[in-house]
Nucleic acid binder design. Structure first.
Lengths: 149, 149
DNA sequence: ATTTATGCAAATCGTTTGCAAACCT
DNA sequence: AGGTTTGCAAACGATTTGCATAAAT
């Protein structure tokens, strides 16, 4: 567990007067090892910690800007490391069939345009943009196969 | 209640062997009168129908492609009329403070680019895009004022 | 007449919380 | 020691569901 972002995580927690406990390290490790947002159930299973601790620590990590919450089409919240820790700006493919979420990236010229629109809106004063979501909702390969079966 | 889309709604329900009952008409009317997605609680209050009926009918209307479910940052689902009924393609400004959702539109050249990316992905076969979401998360005017107070 | 929708109250289930024991500094 | 975190079990709350009645065709 010597990921490049470990030090950053520690710093962010310290800034918020929070400890970087074993449980929290486990969460960061699990999320850092996944290449897609995970549900609380998945995290609990792999991370080997109580459900309540998982939720409580995810909340702490979210408040410190370490973890980001992702919503899908199903009833489960999903969690991933904040983008500025992984340095991997991405968007989500959300499967309307199974709820699974996968990461994907878009061309730079599209990102610039998204940023431009956001900047204009913030400049207007009506809405201060903090983040953008560009998600595609559809069917993953598995659910396409399932539908045509 | 003679909105231009009333006939379309009726047709869609009929296609799914569903009745266009008074309760469902009330829901469509309420959603048609709002210029933003509404929570179930808001709908129940204005629409004067039981909560269970509201949820059940929203589910039916959603399955028929009449209503669209929108997720925000809070725990409440929000509902709006499907875009192809209102003929008003738009995106959402999601307030991270109060959870409120407002509609907004983006320049055509951005929409084309979004569509292009979606089409490429679908062509690849890995993911069949059915819909895109471009949402901006931030602070509405009220929550900006509240934060600086 | 028969099928479907309604309202009420109870159940469901992801998530949150109270509390006593274990942990860190 | 003093404050924080943990795990368990109970509570919470938005949404769903069972069932008897009312409405629609």
């Amino acid at each position: 567990m010597s990921e490049p972002f470990e030090a950053l995580v520690r710093a962010r927690l310290q800034d918020a007067d929070q400890r970087y406990t074993t449980g929290r390290q486990a969460l960061v490790k699990v999320l850092g090892g996944a290449q897609r947002p995970l549900t609380a159930a998945e995290i609990v299973e792999v991370g080997d910690l109580a459900q309540s601790s998982a939720y409580r620590n995810l909340a702490v990590l979210e408040a410190c800007g370490v973890v980001h919450r992702v919503s899908s089409t199903d009833e489960f919240a999903r969690f991933e490391l904040a983008e500025d820790l992984t340095d991997h700006h991405h968007h989500h493919l959300i499967c309307a069939g199974c709820g699974d979420v996968a990461d994907f990236t878009v061309p730079d010229r599209l990102e610039s345009m998204l940023a431009e629109v956001a900047a204009e809106l913030t400049a207007s004063g009506d809405f201060a943009v903090e983040d953008h979501r560009f998600d595609l909702v559809g069917r993953c390969r598995d659910c396409q196969a399932r539908a045509s079966a």
